[in-house]
């Protein structure tokens, strides 16, 4: 019983913050509603207004099954065959170039900023 209550309360908080975010977006804040909701939620957790234990269950369910939520849009690719085949080169190049660029920018910057720490946990034989 308390599990259901926990879950319901967590879900209500998340949905309420999302609706608040979309409303703020509609009245002129240039950040998408979901991200505004995320920032408000993060702030509420930091301030202790919302306790982690209230929301963990609902948040974990939404995150674990996120793939289900983007199935309908992905199915929509079936109508975009023409655009995709015509732009295949541009899209593939953009994907590859940008993937390598992001990975190396953040990684190499980390190499400079973060000293090789004792907390490294990965097995690194032969280094």
């Amino acid at each position: 019983m308390s599990t259901i209550f926990d879950f319901g309360r967590g879900l209500a908080i998340v949905v309420a913050l999302y609706l608040l975010g979309t409303w703020l977006h509609r009245v002129g804040v240039p950040i998408p509603g979901g991200v505004l909701g995320l920032l408000l939620f993060y702030g509420a957790l930091l301030a202790g207004v919302v306790k982690l234990a209230w929301v963990e269950r609902a948040a974990n369910l939404l995150l674990r099954h996120m793939v289900l939520l983007f199935v309908p849009l992905t199915v929509g690719l079936m109508e975009l065959g023409k655009v995709l085949s015509r732009q295949a080169l541009a899209l593939t190049a953009s994907l590859l170039v940008s993937f390598v660029a992001v990975l190396l920018t953040t990684g190499v910057l980390g190499r400079w900023l973060l000293p090789q720490a004792a907390e490294s946990t990965e097995e690194e034989a032969g280094r």
Binding site: V14, G21, G37, F41, V55, L62, L69, F70
Partner: peptide, 11 residues
Amino acid sequence: WLGPATVALAV
């Protein structure tokens, strides 16, 4: 529901 899922990323 992708909207509430975005919000949930705060956790």
